[in-house]
Design a protein around this nucleic acid. Structure first.
Length: 674
DNA sequence: CCACTTCTAAACAGAT
DNA sequence: AATCTGTTTAGAAGTG
């Protein structure tokens, strides 16, 4: 019956909410943290533990960024918009309108959707957040390093006075030295990162900029104030920290620590800051007023705890939360200070966002212009056509709803639509709803998969092959050239991140294909049945397709030949553009991977058009093809090569948080359970 | 416009 | 009874 599709479809939503998103993952990271040293790290206790602590704070920073983004939206709700919920189509024009519509705790998934309707994709946002986090970390490290130095000196002094044995002194000094070296290394890394960001224009530390990213949090607040704030907060919430529910307090902690870098103190308040300041200062007032329209949903209340930065007070119900809010977070110096801190962070994020938007626009403009230049490309990279088709695309793939944000988004300007186009999501959603590459596209599935194995494993990009091809590949890859259905499932999930979602759909499709195609032969086994491939039958399916047209094959090859270098180039570019933090995982990073793949597929699409519209050897060949002459096929013509690729209807659901190291072999159908 | 292919959804039945 | 496996049908959509 429908049990599979029914249950799995339903569980898609919950699965996504169950921590498969980066946000939740990060929250968990923050929440699991324990044994924090309250900032008073003993001078002797240095080394790996402290580094781990720094890493934890790093994670906490990311959590903080997300929380702050949420709060930014919420602030805008309270400060800029009337609480009216039924504004007509607010979500289409205003980026934060979704948040306005739902002034409640925004889940990371909702954030993703919101952000996808904006200019930034979740991946981009994540990169952005990491950039912010890197900046914070640098400050934090500096401060931390300084503290360590002071403590070291202090301790050495004390030891000398106490007449300690030289041996102990030496030991302590050695530890300190090691730790300082580690800190220095990290610092250098961060500085490199920073420089890289500056070079890329991702970061602006130039004079004249409205805000200086290096001192985002210190503006309007002196370090001592922040330190005091921090102490208050940390001391007030020690119990919660032990329960592993302390990410919020850590947020503030790290924020304050990082902001207290003495050398970077700046009291400059720019106009934006004051504007935000008003909002921020108003925040506590707003919190004290229950939201009539959402009596039980409050931006600062979720999962039974107070979401005020630095507070994790457990509130049984909404009423107690309100009490807590009024009593603990009244309009006092501390709350104001917290708001100011947050204001600065938000402001910084806004600036960064604006910058990235700008860059993205430039990129999209550039690509669009470029792609339309060749007169022959009727659908240049789908950058434009995608917009009009995205709606039907998402309608055609209701399953991918969490990741088809482009659908309702009426682009204000084509440029604004850019980012969503460039995202994997939209790139796959957009364009022809079911864009099937012609046979000419076909690339030897085995070689493609082999070459892009890591990519497919990590990026939730739909492989450009038909189910039949993939099934065949799975079977042929097996040592005995036979697989059970479940083993085929496992192969799919193991090889392709894409197939870790929407299991109901693709599993049904797999079964359907197995049954439908004669080339798949079911062989009764001792303990069940296995599926094998009848190569002859498989070949029969495509005689007229590739039809021994050598030029077509060549074109396929050339297009494929282009893809691989493109991936590499794109990855390199992305790595360079992003951050050192990301370079190591450029391929493992779904965002980059998906993007690379998306662009690759777009390119393939363009190729396809070129191929189909002007036969293989026509003079009007696309520049891309011309630039990449035919190369020899490395593999005998595979039957599946003649197959059309999988349709791209469904969004390539890319959850940034996808656990890439997960072994899906033992858990073939896990996406629904996660 | 049509035939074909592919994908998706779903119903159904038998096996586990 | 629930789930898995396998078959089949239907419709949508892309391609040539």
């Amino acid at each position: 019956m429908m049990q599979e599709s029914g249950t799995e479809t339903k569980s898609n939503g919950s699965a996504i909410q169950n921590g498969s998103s980066s946000g939740n993952h990060l929250l968990e990271c923050g929440g699991l943290r324990e044994g924090r040293s309250n900032g008073e790290t003993p001078a002797v206790d240095v080394g790996a533990a402290d580094l781990a602590h720094v890493q934890q704070q790093q994670q906490a920073l990311q959590v903080a960024r997300q929380l702050l983004l949420q709060q930014q939206q919420q602030q805008q709700v309270s400060g800029l918009k009337s609480p009216k919920r039924n504004d007509k189509q607010p979500a289409l024009q205003v980026p934060v309108s979704v948040a306005m519509m739902t002034p409640q705790v925004i889940t990371p998934q909702q954030m993703q959707q919101i952000l996808q309707q904006q200019v930034l994709s979740p991946q981009q946002l994540q990169v952005l957040l990491q950039q912010q986090q890197a900046l914070m970390l640098q400050q934090q490290l500096q401060e931390f390093y300084k503290k360590q130095q002071e403590q070291l000196q202090l301790q050495l002094l004390q030891q000398q006075h106490a007449g300690k044995q030289p041996k102990e002194q030496q030991q302590v000094a050695t530890q300190q030295l090691a730790f300082q070296q580690q800190l220095l290394q990290m610092q250098q890394l961060q500085q490199q990162h920073l420089l890289s960001l500056q070079r890329q224009g991702l970061l602006t530390i130039q004079p004249g900029q409205p805000a200086l990213p290096l001192q985002p949090l210190t503006q309007g607040m002196i370090p001592a104030e922040l330190q005091q704030l921090w102490k208050e907060v940390t001391s007030a919430h020690t119990p919660e920290e032990a329960t592993g529910n302390n990410h919020s307090s850590l947020d503030l902690t790290t924020t304050c620590v990082s902001s207290s870098a003495p050398s970077k103190t700046s009291l400059i308040m720019n106009p934006h800051a004051s504007t935000n300041g008003q909002l921020s200062v108003h925040t506590p007032k707003r919190e004290s007023l229950p939201n009539e329209e959402h009596p039980h949903s409050h931006p600062l209340y979720g999962h039974g705890v107070c979401k005020w930065p630095g507070c994790e007070a457990v509130c049984e119900d909404f009423q107690s939360f309100l009490k807590h809010l009024n009593s603990e977070h009244a309009l006092d110096d501390r709350s104001t200070a917290q708001c100011r801190v947050q204001m600065q962070v938000v402001q910084q994020l806004e600036l960064q966002l604006a910058k990235d938007k700008e860059r993205l626009q430039a990129m999209m403009t550039h690509l669009h212009v470029k792609s339309t230049e060749p007169k022959t490309a009727p659908q240049p990279l789908n950058l434009v056509s995608s917009v009009t088709l995205s709606k039907s695309a998402s309608e055609a793939s209701p399953q991918s709803l969490p990741h088809t944000p482009t659908t309702p988004t009426a682009p204000i300007t084509p440029v604004t639509q850019g980012p969503s186009v460039i995202t994997t999501t939209s790139m796959h959603t957009v364009g022809p709803i079911r864009r099937r590459y012609s046979d000419k596209y076909n690339v030897p599935i085995s070689s493609d998969i082999a070459q892009n194995q890591e990519f497919y494993k990590n990026a939730e990009v739909r492989p450009p092959f038909t189910y039949a091809s993939l099934i065949r590949q799975a079977i042929l890859e097996s040592p005995e050239k036979q697989l059970t259905l479940n083993e085929i499932y496992n192969w799919f999930t193991r090889m392709f991140a894409y197939f870790r979602r929407n299991a109901a759909t693709w599993k049904n499709a797999v079964r359907h294909n197995l049954s439908l195609h004669k080339c798949f032969v079911r062989v009764e086994n001792v303990k069940g049945a296995v599926w094998t491939v009848d190569e002859v039958e498989f070949q029969k399916r495509r005689p007229q397709k590739i039809s021994g047209n050598p030029s077509l094959i060549k074109n396929m090859q050339s297009s494929h030949a282009y893809c691989t270098p493109l991936n590499a180039a794109l990855q390199a570019s992305m790595a360079e553009n992003s951050i050192p933090l990301y370079t190591t995982a450029s391929m493992g990073n779904p965002s980059l991977g998906t993007l690379a793949s998306a662009m690759r597929e777009e390119l393939n699409g363009a190729m396809e058009h070129t191929n189909s519209n002007e036969s293989d050897s026509s003079p009007g060949r696309s520049p891309l093809q011309a630039a990449h002459p035919v190369h020899v096929k490395e593999e005998p013509l595979d039957p599946e090569e003649a197959e059309g690729p999988l349709s791209l209807v469904t969004t390539a659901n890319h959850s940034p948080d996808f656990d890439q190291d997960r072994d899906y072999e033992d858990e073939p159908v896990n996406e629904d359970m996660e």
